[in-house]
Computed example of a mutant assay.
Amino acid sequence: MKFATLAALSSLALSVAACQSEAEKQADAMEDTVERQADASAAASGDAQVALGLTERQLLDADLVTADGTELGDVAQVRRSGSTVEGLLVEIEDSNPDRYVMVPLAGLSTRADGNDTDVQTSMTAAQLAALPTATLATN
């Protein structure tokens, strides 16, 4: 019985994967690349504060929120020019396919959320959505 259940689940997983469009496959690959790059950068920066009094790992764990705590997106990468942090690459909440925008550091602050720290912006969801789609590195 266990083998039959396992075979059925494997067949279902293959069917779902086959239903994925090329655009969805590319979006998944891009998201994996963004995550790998962010993890490598966070490991390299260690415990050093890089922006807003937070480490890169803390920034990558943060959500981008409004003043009332409404989640606008997830911080996906810390973007730099040389050693200077210029902004945050944010995946817009509920975008499908995933959409990333570059949010400049100017105007951002931190906001406590229990044991976590989020990044707060004065932008609205509409203003965030109006930002140009960020160029993503593919290496």
Rank of each mutant, 00 (worst) to 15 (best):
D47W: 08
Q37T: 07
A137E: 14
Q120K: 09
S21C: 12
D74E: 05
S95C: 08
G114F: 12
I92A: 04
L60Y: 01
Q127T: 09
T33Q: 14
A112L: 12
Q49T: 14
T138F: 11
L128R: 02
V119S: 03
E93A: 13
A62L: 01
T5H: 04
D98C: 02
D116A: 09
A7S: 06
S15T: 14
D32W: 13
A76K: 00
V103W: 00
E91H: 12
V103K: 00
E24F: 06
V16S: 04
A23D: 13
D39M: 02
S83A: 04
T66Y: 02
T84G: 05
T138I: 03
V85H: 04
A126I: 02
L9A: 13
V78M: 02
A40P: 00
S41N: 06
V65M: 07
S21G: 14
E56M: 13
L54T: 02
E86Y: 05
M1T: 11
R99F: 04
V90K: 00
S95A: 15
P97D: 11
T138Q: 15
L9S: 13
E31I: 03
D118Y: 01
A27R: 04
S109H: 09
D63A: 05
A137W: 02
S81C: 10
V103L: 09
D116K: 03
V50M: 03
S83M: 01
E93G: 01
D68N: 11
P97T: 08
T135R: 08
R36I: 10
L131C: 09
L6V: 11
V90L: 03
A62F: 00
D98W: 04
M1F: 15
F3G: 02
L12I: 13
R79D: 09
A17L: 11
N139H: 07
D39T: 11
A51K: 00
D118Q: 07
A130Q: 08
A112S: 15
A44F: 06
L89H: 00
D116W: 04
S11I: 10
L52I: 06
L72T: 02
A38F: 11
T121G: 01
T110D: 05
I92M: 08
L108E: 12
V90N: 00
M30D: 08
L12A: 10
M1A: 15
Q20K: 13
M30L: 14
R57V: 10
T84W: 09
V16Q: 03
Q127V: 08
L88M: 10
Y100K: 07
Q49P: 04
L88E: 01
L128C: 05
E35A: 08
A42G: 14
T110R: 02
E24L: 12
A134T: 15
Q26T: 01
A18K: 13
A112R: 12
M1V: 15
S21F: 14
C19M: 14
S21A: 10
R36H: 11
D39P: 00
E35P: 02
A125N: 05
L108A: 11
E56D: 14
D74L: 02
G53Q: 08
T84M: 06
L9E: 15
D116F: 08
Q120N: 01
A106R: 12
F3D: 09
T33M: 06
A17D: 10
